[in-house]
Amino acid sequence: MTDEATVRRYRRLLHAYPGWHRHRYGPDLLTTLLDAAEADPGADSRRARAAIVADGLRTRVRVRGAGWLLAALAALAGAGALAGLAGFASWYATVGPAPTRARAVAVAGPLLPAGKPSVDTVSDGAYESGGDPLDTALMAVLGDPDPARGGVVLEWFEVPHRAAPLADAGRYLSGHGWRVRHDAETLVADRARLRIELTVLAGDARHPDDVTVHVLPIPPTTAYVLATVGAAVGLVAGWLVAAAVLARARHRATADLAALVLLVVAVLGTLPAAGLDLLAVGSAGSLLPEPPWSGYHFALARPLGACGALALGAVLLLTVRRRPRTRVTA
């Protein structure tokens, strides 16, 4: 006869198996393990218990046949979605205050061309309007669709050409305590939680320059770190959800097949935005890194993303709430 402590120990070990497997086979698998332990005490060794956990974890990640493709895409979609979510949340929890227009003009004054800028945008929040009719239509449903880095953007078109505007600006800013980096077209300078991005599309002796000055809070490094962590968690979570949905669908219950169809919709819906989020996370080390949620700037991704998110919610409801049963045919 098996003692209660052994039963409890096996019950705990069986938590390594996914929920769908525990509901379908758990009570029977427990009996089999106890039968084996009773017949052969060696079957209850530490090694055998480790094997139970390993088998359970393998069952969580196992995907059969062509299902690996859906699981891989679900993993990518999960990685991008969680990277975007973690990046967005941590960005606005840690970013410094946006500068006013007066402050921006004060710090960047000597860099600004003479005259009134052609474009003058001030954004002090997480969002700015897109101006696209599709964006405007979607705003009622999805909120303002263009999360932005905030700050003051001033643009001058066709100003008189200068020989080396970035080099001059770099020397000036370095001399005033800014940390400066630049490439052929763009200069980035950081000081005391504030950043200046100066972009010059240089013409030549006969063609004028276009100059853009963006003064904004320094993009927080934490956002990229947490977005990377979110990507790793989402990668694993996406694979595990897909593996569970595929495993359950093999038994062809209507709800499980519906969950599989919804998962395909969810993956196809979220993948474009999620892919762009992942690219943005990968741009963290570049001169002008994209915010980690940049995928959601992509107009086509937003309605798709909304459908995908709804479908994913339905998948989770169907797989988490519904408990599979084993049919007895006797």
Binding site: L29, L33, I52, D55, R62, R250, H251, T326, T329, A330
Partner: peptide, 23 residues
């Protein structure tokens, strides 16, 4: 191993090659 057995039983019942006869 029990894990191997139940992985096989899950696949075989899904494919209709094995069924539960009693409980």
């Amino acid at each position: 191993r029990a894990g191997t057995l139940y992985a096989a039983l899950d696949r075989l019942t899904a494919e209709g090659l094995v069924e539960v006869a009693g409980e």
